[in-house]
Design a protein around this nucleic acid. Structure first.
Lengths: 231, 231
DNA sequence: CCGGAAGTTTGAGCAAGAGCAACGTTCGCC
DNA sequence: GGCGAACGTTGCTCTTGCTCAAACTTCCGG
């Protein structure tokens, strides 16, 4: 295992209040691993043996129903902790994590969770903030699902992905990882057909541009308008 | 303020590992209050000044959309902590809490949160377990919303309420607090009309019995069958 | 360079459930 | 004891978006 560079963690919120020495300790106990697009990092229901930090790439957190349907609960961006089941006293992972793009993550065995929480200043605070944000995000998604029509939900989801991973390009803002029509349908509780029709229509209107697995939002403002129920 | 009896807390998970003396301390700092059906305990977005424990009654946790629609995120049963925004480093409440039935709750100022977490054994653990369960419940609801038809969602929600608050009666198991058709529609993302039709149909089939605001499930097993998508 | 897999598009038909409307019932309050 | 508000029921209409079907395009591996 190559020695990990301290600069990997220095900027990140959970570690921002630590000194060089402490970061070194943390890195020395970490395992680094690369995941290809589509690879599973951990699976719902399995023993939570490690907790993770995403260094690079994007993840999807998904749940599968008994009936075989799949839904995407949220996405994880670089710099975020994930698989932090131990924070909520869980012994198994509550969902499955899959690499949406090629990704790199550090991980530590759960037995280090408690020491981390108690010895590293700011680590607990940031972990719980992250959980709070995610809870909020899921609640928002739930609210949208319950009250908004499909078109609005798809617009909202596109905007959310743009906000979390957008990269400026010549044509507009690109979503920073591959997304299929089917993925979007799994985020919005609809079918890939309906998503395809919506994107086609928006492309005709100059709101988005898309190629296979890649989406660029060229007119975010108009997408916001679509996302608002009455207007 | 009448002195609160120690037996109020002795059985409850967050305090189960504490001695008489510690429970006394906790009670001495608590404020007890009664809420009528429909009363608001705290509101989404307001400063989180206190955290709570529900002693008796039932609460609804709701969110309101900009468009004025309302959804019920979850219910809270006696013995549970709620309004524990501080646990997730939040300074405002992420949702509104309303008494579904006449209720009694204790509360403490948030500045006591940290002392509670650090000095009372088991308190932190139980609080985070509660959060974990709620996150799981919301995720389940989200999954149902995204993958199941209205009939299944309504069946699932009835069963959940029965499990959380069911009381055996001569005819079956009664939901332990008042619920309107409209409330159910706010839990399932449908309309009160559709809920009314479903309940009427189920009543005809002998699966439920209902009067104004009161629902008794007479044949839970068949309701479970309805709740399963393919079967 | 070819073939298959994965992803995308589009059309046509249909049904679930929303919206609208009207009326009935129960309850609490003056 | 009567009135109004809140809650519930039911019929009808109409739209959204799902299902089914088929073809097309892009990508990747051999």
């Amino acid at each position: 295992m190559p020695k990990l560079d301290e600069s990997l963690l220095t900027g990140l919120p959970p570690f921002s209040r630590l000194d060089r020495q402490q970061i070194r300790e943390i890195l020395n106990q970490a395992t680094s691993r690369r995941y290809e697009e589509g690879a599973e990092i951990f699976r719902e229901g399995h023993d939570a043996e490690r907790f993770f930090l995403l260094l690079d790439g994007y993840l999807r957190v998904i749940r599968t129903t008994p009936g075989g349907d799949q839904i995407i609960v949220l996405h994880i961006s670089p710099g975020q902790l994930f698989g932090i089941a131990p924070a909520l006293q869980r012994t198994t992972y509550p969902a499955t994590a899959v690499a949406a793009a090629e990704s790199i993550a550090l991980s530590w065995p759960v037995r280090l969770w408690h020491p981390f929480i108690t010895t590293y200043e700011g680590f607990a605070t940031e972990s719980y903030k992250t959980l709070g944000r995610r809870l909020g995000e899921i609640q928002t998604t739930l609210t949208e699902m319950a009250t908004q029509a499909v078109e609005q939900r798809v617009a909202a989801v596109l905007l959310r992905m743009v906000n979390q991973s957008g990269q400026k390009t010549g044509e507009g803002i690109a979503i920073g990882f591959p997304v299929t029509r089917n993925n979007i349908s799994e985020m919005t509780g609809t079918t890939l057909h309906t998503v395809s029709r919506l994107l086609s229509a928006w492309e005709k209107d100059g709101i988005v541009r898309s190629t296979r697995k890649r989406i660029v939002v060229t007119d975010p403002h108009r997408l916001v308008m679509i996302g608002e129920p009455r207007g």
